[in-house]
Write a protein that binds this DNA or RNA. Structure first.
Lengths: 142, 142
DNA sequence: CCTTGACCTGGAGCGCGCTCCAGCTTCTAC
DNA sequence: GTAGAAGCTGGAGCGCGCTCCAGGTCAAGG
């Protein structure tokens, strides 16, 4: 992806703050993820200190954030990263992990939607009573 | 509500563990919610100690759990409880609070669904490669 | 050169939402 | 009456996912 033909020596690489704004995370969070073992390998360093993120790092981190934003716990992402690191032969395990996560997300979406329906009903009651400028006709609950 | 004509003296009331299993919470959580100011009023006590939950308490707590399970923070639930406690005149504020929450939940549902779509795609890649017993055709990311 | 700001590390701190505990009182069943 | 379960209070502890900090290194502009 995005292979740059114009300058062959310059391999795509970003500072931590560039990587942060590219992924919507903070530098602190990026360092935290690395320490926590969520990355496939330690990020490359320039001049014996500062991190340099390449395209592969960014693609992986982007996937991480999708897992996080669907509620996958750090621990489980770490397991997934371990499987990927282990290389060929772990594909079935990775698939299983992702499918389990998918199922969990669907369950959770459904639960939220159910509970939201009850809240919607409450909202409609309030909307009616506010429209008519009447106190809500509640008997104990509100 | 639910006025029982059969036994006029017995007003509906439950111990904390009964209330807990009725609401899917634990006794500790019920006490925590009460301490945190999420209830409309301190729960009634029997014989100068043990809590007794009546139908109104249960209806309210049930609503609380729906708010919690859609991700409303304790702080905001507390605000809502304060409005309800304040009585007539706060209906518009309550409505606004619930509508804001609804909007937040919808945004979050949408975000989760978007991210899940990317994960679904990943799953389909893995499913194909596992079916064919081939290593995943990945170029840096996995 | 020197300043200024980004980056480094290891570790502490925090906000959230419970959960658990000690030490005591109370209720229930026998 | 008595044992054992259940409840009480105040407060500590915990798992999670960051977030912040001190104290130092490094690098680029003037």
């Amino acid at each position: 992806m995005a292979a740059v033909l114009s300058s062959p020596t310059e391999t795509t690489s970003r500072t931590i703050s560039e990587a942060a704004s590219a992924t919507g995370l903070t530098p602190d969070t990026l360092r935290y993820y690395e320490r926590a073992g969520l990355l496939l390998r330690p990020v490359d360093r320039a001049a014996s200190s500062h991190r340099r993120y390449d395209d592969g790092d960014l693609r992986w981190i982007t996937l991480l954030t999708k897992l996080r934003r669907t509620g996958m716990p750090i621990r489980q992402i770490k397991r997934y990263a371990q499987l990927v690191r282990a290389g060929a032969g772990t594909e079935a395990d990775r698939l299983a992990l992702l499918q389990e996560h998918r199922a969990a997300v669907l369950r959770q979406l459904e639960e939220v939607q159910e509970n939201l329906a009850a809240i919607d009903h409450k909202i409609s009651v309030y909307r009616d009573c506010v429209l008519e400028d009447q106190p809500v006709p509640e008997a104990g609950a509100a």
